[in-house]
Design a protein around this nucleic acid. Sequence first.
DNA 1: ATATATTTTTAGATGTGTCTAAAAATATTT
DNA 2: AAATATTTTTAGACACATCTAAAAATATAT
Lengths: 217, 217
Amino acid sequence: MVTLSEENYLKTIYHLGKQGTIAVSTNAIADKIETKASSVTDMIKKLADKNLANYIKYQGVSLTNKGRLAAALVIRKHRLWEVFLVNNLNFSWDEVHEVAEELEHIKSLKLVDELDAFLEFPTHDPHGDPIPDKDGNYSPIKSINILEIEEGKEGVLSFVKDSSDVFLKYLNKNNLALGDSIKVLNVEPFDRSLSIETKSKKLIISREAAENLYLSL
Amino acid sequence: MVTLSEENYLKTIYHLGKQGTIAVSTNAIADKIETKASSVTDMIKKLADKNLANYIKYQGVSLTNKGRLAAALVIRKHRLWEVFLVNNLNFSWDEVHEVAEELEHIKSLKLVDELDAFLEFPTHDPHGDPIPDKDGNYSPIKSINILEIEEGKEGVLSFVKDSSDVFLKYLNKNNLALGDSIKVLNVEPFDRSLSIETKSKKLIISREAAENLYLSL
DNA sequence: ATATATTTTTAGATGTGTCTAAAAATATTT
DNA sequence: AAATATTTTTAGACACATCTAAAAATATAT
């Protein structure tokens, strides 16, 4: 059994380990979790005992396959709950983190998978971060809001924040679909409306619409 | 701050205290929580220190107003989550308890109230137990499935398990609505179909329909 | 009402996760 | 390469929630 605290360490090591293949340092974990280095050492030993982490004294930690899968599951749950909170419970994207930090520790596997289905298998959370599947795999691409993309650059539409009927119909009407390549031509400073170009045509979209469109570069 | 363990004790004392006004005994709590009497004594003292319970040595415990409200909130969360699991995530009524035991401890008040709204303010959980409101109040009546009611008795329709469109339309078509007085005339042993009588007329409903109808007596 | 049984509390111990302070190992500077 | 600084680990302590075993209080039986 993996405890709540262990799950938080796994998640943190997973995130810190993403950039670079080097083992994660004790202090880096302590900073992220806001605890003391000595506490980290204690916990790392427990994770190693449970075959969730590889640990060599004074050399830092990395996750085993088992640890990586456990971490990915926590992240999967966190991001799925974030989608639920924003899409169904009127939370704004900046309110969800704290609540998701609690919800991510609920154990039931059936719950995760049914939630995934209920949300219609989202690929990204409301911050544009990708959601791991059951096996811990996901497209390593963080999608970013189209308003934050430089003029002249293009990306692939990979996620829409608002999945309401009206918005999906709007996309349809304008011939925009997930997977489409979109080039950002110009942002109008006055109202932040956006002119964009797809394979088939150019069009102008409002700031409201743009806020819901996420591209991966 | 109320800890997870404290919340479980509050909930248990609340439930045990419902029947009768006498204080709840240490052993009764120990049995329910499946722990030892000595552990209960320890915890009761903590609850009393936090003004959540009234405690006199060797005389048992009762909840303060503060404790009662805290307990009702936990029960409110538990039952709302049960409704969500059954109505939206394809859980059956006998699978939900364990998961709800975890979900009931998630702290965010916004979460509870938004969930309540999302579920359209249900009054009863999938087992027919009433759901407390924000202030801890609820109709003290447990509603029971119409199939479990004795022939000849009547009750008031207070809860429908299936709130899908088709079922609600079915109710409409048959002139059945929440609040209606319904008398159970007869259960057909062959297919467990039910003949019932309302103010306006008699009708026969199938077992499938009956399974979704809960009356309070 | 005294003896016996039951319930409840106290005292002291254990495991988890954290902490401080000091020691050990590693990294950096000169 | 020796001295200094930084990082990491160890040792010992603490809070929380639990436990066992024994003592104290209450309840029941004769």
